[in-house]
Design a binder for these strands. Structure first.
Lengths: 157, 157
DNA sequence: TTGTTAATGAAAATCATTTTCAATTTAAGG
DNA sequence: CCTTAAATTGAAAATGATTTTCATTAACAA
């Protein structure tokens, strides 16, 4: 097995084990799918993608693993208002590609955007600091979502 | 009936009727509760509050009305990650008091904050304009939520 | 008042997510 | 490699918020 490969699988092993979790085949399969997938997957999406390579897995384990991973901050759990949660990998070994979401309330399409992220990040850092102090919160995370109608849906109206 | 009272009930009548909806007793009761309540109510919270004054009402109608109202932008539907939606009145006759949320992932407590709102609003206006143009979205709305642990929950850990 | 149609409540249906529980797998120690 | 305790699993049942169905009622234009 080529050396270059070892790091690829290695880092989440440490993260899980370090927190007292075991790295099982199911979890590995899920992490594999999440890390490769672009975009926002529902539990069932993930199930579908994991199943071919690891048919043994059940939906229940997907949910359980997703819970663990989002508890560890390795995965973000998102809500776009359509009644099912979406999950996305928080960051790869190469680092985070921070982005936010633009949600069409007509067709539920979701656009990831990274525009204006720099200014945003700057402001949010400040805000976060201020809120932390004022309300005694230890802030771990934030979301920003814009809602509106995409071009197609706006026309239909 | 004192003149001063007429405006109080009047403005949402117009809004609903103007969009082809009827102003029923149930809807009025719900609007009444929403407009007076501080904070974020679940459908069931609203049911509880409406029931004493209007026992005839069913939970189903609460959901249906809430749907209509959020469709009209009179109510915001919020998700704090605990599996039940919360609703808050978008603005009173006196005008909006724009705020965002700080959610404790330990105990689900939610703090409304208005700090830094001015800078935020400024930045978001810009961002909104840019995104609108770039992605062809007609943006109606946005949310910002910070997640973390409140003081009490941080200690427990 | 009357007719048309939207709106309603109750009960049943949905559907994503959780829980239960017995069987299996992991990883640490011999 | 083998054993063992505890974590993890899958299947099936349970949960619980939200929706749908459908027959009845209420709103309001004429």
């Amino acid at each position: 097995m080529p050396k270059g490969n070892c790091r690829g699988n290695g880092w989440w092993h440490g993260k899980l084990r370090g927190c007292g979790y075991r790295l099982t085949m199911g979890r590995e399969a899920i992490l594999d799918v999440l890390s490769k997938a672009e975009g926002h997957l529902s539990a069932e999406d993930i199930y579908m993608k994991v199943h071919p390579g690891y048919p043994h897995i059940g939906l229940t384990s997907i949910y359980r693993t997703l819970d663990v991973l989002s508890g560890l901050g390795m995965v973000y759990k998102l809500d776009f208002g359509d009644g099912r949660a979406r999950y996305e990998f928080a960051e790869g070994p190469k680092g985070a590609h921070h982005h936010h979401h633009l949600v069409c309330t007509g067709c539920n399409k979701v656009v990831d955007y990274t525009d204006f992220i720099d200014e945003e990040v700057e402001l949010l850092r400040e805000t976060e600091k201020g809120l932390s102090k004022k309300y005694g919160f230890k802030i771990a995370n934030h979301i920003i979502q814009f809602y509106g109608l995409c071009e197609a849906c706006a026309k239909k109206k």
